[in-house]
Write a protein that binds this DNA or RNA. Structure first.
Length: 568
RNA sequence: GGCGGGAUAGCUCAGCUGGUUAGAGCGCAGGACUCAUAAUCCUGAGGUCGAGAGUUCAAGUCUCUCUCCCGCUACCA
């Protein structure tokens, strides 16, 4: 039994996430976690809300709330909506936890002791009206290059020129609109990433199992030369900066930068889990304390790759402590929405809460997995969604379960028939299954989601093909025992189809397995070499046809949703 | 500008280290069946694999050039 640690990129706290966020990290991580649990491995799937940073403060202000209260509320909302999507986190923590503060401070102090952190003085824009320093992008003004009037302090959106806030003509705060700004000196901590480059490069050199995309992004950063990053900010909301365990002089009004403490949140959330459940978190994260045999897998969108392959490892490696580093990494492209992006800030697209108002989570889980944005960016369209759901779930799987269970109830009193001897059709489906189960398992191990879903569907479709070959309804007229073989095999196929569907559509799979009376300890991942798969249900065992599993999506619904969500 | 990813049947996409008639799903057409959510099963129509050149006995599959999309470019997560 292997031990597998799984994390998905931490969803930011400012509101319910959209389907793009779900498809690109949390859902694939969940599918993988479920698959590996079914294989009998010891899995720990950790996620958390990422709560620090200016956007959180602004969102709280916009909601008229204290930032802590806002985060408390949003954390619960995200946790609940994730659970309603059947995300099987072992723990869903928060980066604002005491555990994360402690660990973040620990890393900073260790890095400083190792000579990798220096204090520097920077000049930054201070807004008197807002009584705070402004991050570059919260200062706008006229671009000195092209004259565009709404250039941001980091870059001009019109001409693309990279800017410093002090370059702007007539700058103002985007928070209050105030022009009462001044440049002030401010002390900060800087992480000497440039000193880490050889070690990071060596580490990436050894990470030969990463996807090409991940390695090329990592090398790009390394080749350009790692910049020393300022890891503190002039904010009040975040992890306090300490020295020797106490407040650090001159840093009383500063916190760590969100990108420094967020990935540490993976570890901290595991510590939260340990505290809540009485487990030991260090055996998952410290190679000197039992984590040596852990395989650590990270899931994220492509925008996050550099932080996971370079920035966070710099923190870990720089500590010189035996922390677990990522072993496998799966990155996703974007799920787009009618030509543009899903956008939290401009409310474009479908969000997790409204998705569930339309249809149960399995519908979304299936679509987003079978059309995962793996190779390139992918478009979400209602027409495609409708087609996939109706064909794959309603027609191929749902109808199969319905036809075989109804027929069994009608002709065999709802009991798994015992009579008859397997023949040609059964030999065909058996060989088909062993071949396809082998392929399916390999696709999951390789984290190839589209292929895994396509193979799952192909197995379901083979069930329908089997029934055409076996045609128990024809044989029933002349030879009831021959029909019995077909029904028994068909029922076992239904059970098997539900078992292999569990990683992607756990709720529906559970319904089918419940209706067929398959006990929990008979629901684990099938071995493709197992010869008893088609006779696993006890003969004579009573089954109940489940309710229709999937309702088809009508054209009228699509029209209504397009209207409601603006999908054109 | 730099870096990276795409461009394959009407649509969405597979095609690993180059090698028999380029594949799948959807859609479409015809047929079969009737247990089932008018579901299912079979068959078919054929795309100069973005353009051009090159390497090779042999190229979607390697090299070069070009065109068109898209993403990233570090204090926005």
């Amino acid at each position: 039994m292997a031990r597998i640690l799984i994390t998905s990129a931490l969803p930011y706290i400012n509101g319910i996430k959209h389907l793009g966020n779900l498809a690109g990290s949390m859902l694939p991580a969940d599918v993988y976690a479920r698959f590996q649990r079914m294989r009998g491995h010891e899995v720990l799937y950790i996620c958390a809300t990422d709560e620090h940073g200016t956007p959180a403060e602004l969102a709280a202000a916009a909601a008229g709330q204290d930032v802590r209260a806002y985060c408390d509320e949003q954390h619960v909302l995200q946790k609940e909506i994730g659970e309603r999507f059947a995300l099987s986190w072992d723990y869903f923590g928060r980066t604002s936890s005491p555990e994360n503060a402690k660990l973040t401070q620990h890393f900073a102090e260790v890095l400083e002791a190792n000579g990798l952190i220096a204090e520097i003085v920077e000049k930054q824009i201070y807004s008197k009206a807002d009584t705070r320093f402004l991050p570059d992008r919260y200062v706008e003004g006229t671009c000195p290059n092209c004259g565009f009037e709404k250039a941001r302090g980091d870059q001009c959106d019109n001409c693309g020129k990279l800017l410093e806030p002090t370059d702007l003509i007539e700058p103002y705060s985007t928070i209050s609109g105030s022009r009462d700004l001044e440049v002030r000196d401010t002390r900060h901590l800087q992480l000497k990433q440039s000193q880490m480059e050889p070690r990071l490069r060596q580490w990436v050199d050894e990470a030969t199992s990463w996807p090409q995309l991940a390695r090329s992004i990592a090398y790009k950063w390394l080749d350009e030369g790692l910049r020393d990053r300022t890891i503190t900010r002039d904010l009040s909301w975040g992890v306090k900066v300490t020295k020797d365990g106490g407040p650090r002089e001159g840093f009383e009004d500063k916190v760590f930068y969100v990108w420094f403490d967020a990935p540490i949140g993976y570890i901290a959330a595991t510590a939260e889990w340990a505290k809540a459940t009485g487990n030991d978190w260090e055996r998952w994260w410290r190679t000197d304390k039992g984590a040596g045999d852990v395989s650590y897998v990270q899931f994220m969108g492509k925008d996050n790759v550099a932080f996971h392959t370079v920035s966070f490892p710099a923190t870990i490696l720089g500590s010189e402590e035996p922390w677990k580093l990522v072993d496998r990494l799966k990155a996703f492209n974007w799920l787009n929405w009618y030509g543009g992006k899903f956008s939290t800030s401009s409310k474009r697209g479908v969000f997790m809460d409204s998705a569930l108002e339309l249809l149960p989570s399995d519908y979304w889980r299936w679509y987003l997995t079978s059309n995962a944005p793996e190779g390139s960016d992918t478009q979400f369209t209602w027409e495609s969604f409708q087609g996939v759901i109706n064909s794959d779930l309603a027609n191929v799987l749902g109808n199969f379960v319905n036809r075989i269970t109804k027929y069994c109830a009608a002709k065999f009193e709802g009991q798994v028939p015992a009579a008859g001897t397997p023949g040609e059709a059964e030999a065909w489906i058996a060989s088909e299954l062993s071949e396809r189960l082998k392929a399916l398992t390999a696709h999951y191990e390789a984290m190839e989601y589209r292929k895994a879903a396509a193979e799952t569907r192909a197995i379901w479709a083979a069930g329908n093909e089997y029934l055409t070959k076996a045609e128990p309804w024809v044989k029933y007229k002349s030879d009831v025992d021959a029909a019995a073989v077909g029904v028994r095999t068909g029922l076992n196929l239904a059970a098997l189809f539900a078992i292999i569907a569990q990683p992607i559509i756990p709720d529906t799979a559970g319904k089918v397995l419940g209706a067929l009376g398959v006990p929990d300890d008979r629901r684990s991942w099938p071995d493709w070499q197992d010869k008893t798969l088609l006779d696993a249900l006890p003969q004579g065992h009573a089954i109940t046809p489940p309710e229709v599993l999937f309702a088809k999506i009508e054209d009228a619904s699509v029209e209504e949703w397009k209207e409601r969500f603006g999908g054109e």
